[in-house]
Amino acid sequence: MGRSPQTVELRHSQLRFVAREIGAHSNAVTEDDLTTFFACYGEERGPETRKSYRAAVRAFFD
Rank of each mutant, 00 (worst) to 15 (best):
L15E: 05
F17E: 15
P47M: 09
G42Q: 11
L34E: 07
E21N: 10
G42R: 12
P47K: 14
D62P: 00
H12W: 03
F38W: 05
R20T: 07
E43S: 09
L10P: 00
P5F: 06
K51W: 04
H25V: 09
D62M: 12
F61N: 10
S4A: 14
R58H: 11
S26T: 13
A28F: 09
M1F: 04
Q14V: 08
R50K: 13
L15R: 02
S52E: 10
F60L: 10
G23H: 11
Q6T: 12
D33C: 10
E31T: 14
L15H: 01
V57F: 03
F17S: 06
E21G: 03
A39Q: 10
E9S: 10
V18F: 03
F60H: 12
R3I: 06
S13E: 08
V8K: 15
T30W: 04
S26C: 00
A39D: 11
V18H: 01
C40L: 13
T7Y: 02
S13W: 13
A56W: 00
A56L: 05
E48S: 14
T49L: 06
R16W: 01
F61P: 01
P5E: 08
A56Q: 02
L10N: 14
D32I: 08
G46E: 08
G2F: 05
F38P: 07
E48K: 12
F37P: 02
Y53L: 07
D62N: 11
E21C: 11
E9L: 13
V29G: 03
G42V: 01
R16N: 13
K51D: 08
T30E: 06
G23M: 07
T35Q: 12
Y53P: 05
R20E: 15
A19N: 07
A56D: 06
Q6P: 04
R16A: 13
L34Q: 08
D62Y: 10
S26A: 13
D32P: 00
A56T: 03
D33F: 07
R54V: 01
R45P: 00
Q6S: 14
G2W: 02
